[in-house]
């Protein structure tokens, strides 16, 4: 099996990762190595960070998903998975390329935002917001208009100047209703979880290989009663900092790994360099209605 490309890393894996682009870089030793093997139920001297996750003093993490398996994630990049016998490969990849990827980002002092992102005019535009607010839906609609999907759940930000997004993979997790609204059929697609009407859709355009400058962040929110729709730039530094903190993927994991300061500085760098907008929509807003306005906002 050929190695894959994930956020700039060379990844070698015992299980197939069809979402990823092939590694075409140098012949370095793989940055991440995924193996199937035994994983103990407890991490010796591990501290419980959340109900299903422990982290120990060396920065290793153990994620346990009852019907999927155990994932041991070492800071060296070694990842061991002990799957439950009934787990499907899609289910294993869901957590490997989700929670585990988030942990790897924190181990490596990157800033993972809970965001979908797409490429617009050679830069990445990120959409953040609570579940159900339409992050993946917006990314899908941009993809249908010819834009590459840079990331789905996790937008991995490298804090250089200007901040850059390391592309994940062009796969979107979409509910049946969202797909049908976009005139797509979920027929033949892998399910997010067995029996769930949520599917793994691979965007049609070639994924992105190289990091892209982060052009803008949109915080998606729902209009309250009597409130109008619109795009508004956040101006107050404290508002931007608090919003970026709230949108950090697995913030508690980052803190447990001693990244509070790095994450804070990363937020400050973004606050200085990247415009952050609040995009307020009504619950019944048509997804396509905002594409032009978003593009126009970015182009200023």
């Amino acid at each position: 099996m050929t190695d894959g490309l994930l956020c700039g890393w060379r990844i070698r894996s015992d299980i197939a990762l069809p979402e990823l682009l092939d590694w075409q870089g140098d012949d370095r030793i793989p940055d991440l190595v995924v193996r199937l093997g035994e994983v103990d139920e407890r991490l010796p001297e591990g501290r419980e960070i959340s109900p299903l996750l422990q982290i120990d003093g060396t920065g290793a993490g153990l994620l346990q998903v009852p019907m999927v398996g155990r994932f041991l994630v070492r800071p060296s990049g070694g990842i061991t998975i002990a799957p439950q016998p009934e787990a499907s490969e899609a289910e294993i990849r869901l957590f490997l390329l989700g929670s585990v990827l988030g942990m790897v980002c924190h181990q490596r002092a990157l800033l993972p935002l809970h965001a979908s992102s797409v490429a617009i005019d050679g830069g990445a535009v990120a959409f953040c917001g609570p579940s159900g607010m339409g992050k993946s839906t917006l990314a899908l609609r941009f993809a249908q208009h010819g834009h590459s999907v840079v990331s789905d759940d996790i937008c991995v930000i490298e804090t250089c100047e200007p901040p850059r997004v390391r592309p994940c993979f062009p796969r979107l997790k979409l509910w049946r209703d969202t797909m049908e609204d976009a005139a797509l059929s979920p027929e033949g697609l892998e399910r997010n979880r067995r029996g769930q009407e949520k599917f793994h859709f691979r965007a049609p355009h070639a994924g992105v290989r190289e990091p892209l400058p982060l052009r803008a962040i949109f915080l998606l929110r729902r209009a309250g009663s009597g409130e109008g729709e619109g795009i508004q730039r956040l101006a107050a530094p404290l508002d931007i900092m608090a919003a970026l903190e709230a949108e950090t993927f697995r913030l508690q994991v980052g803190h447990a790994l001693g990244r509070a300061e790095t994450l804070f500085q990363a937020r400050a760098l973004i606050a200085n360099d990247v415009p952050v907008y609040r995009l307020t929509r009504r619950a019944d807003a048509q997804p396509d209605r905002w594409l032009d306005a978003i593009a126009a906002t970015i182009r200023g």
């Binding site: 530094p237 404290l238 931007i240 900092m241 509070a260 300061e261 804070f264 400050a268 606050a271 200085n272």
Partner: peptide, 15 residues
């Protein structure tokens, strides 16, 4: 407290 400059503002965070 963590500290950074954002524009003209000095932002502090008490973790």
């Amino acid at each position: 407290p963590l500290e950074a400059a954002i524009g003209d503002t000095r932002v502090l965070l008490d973790v």
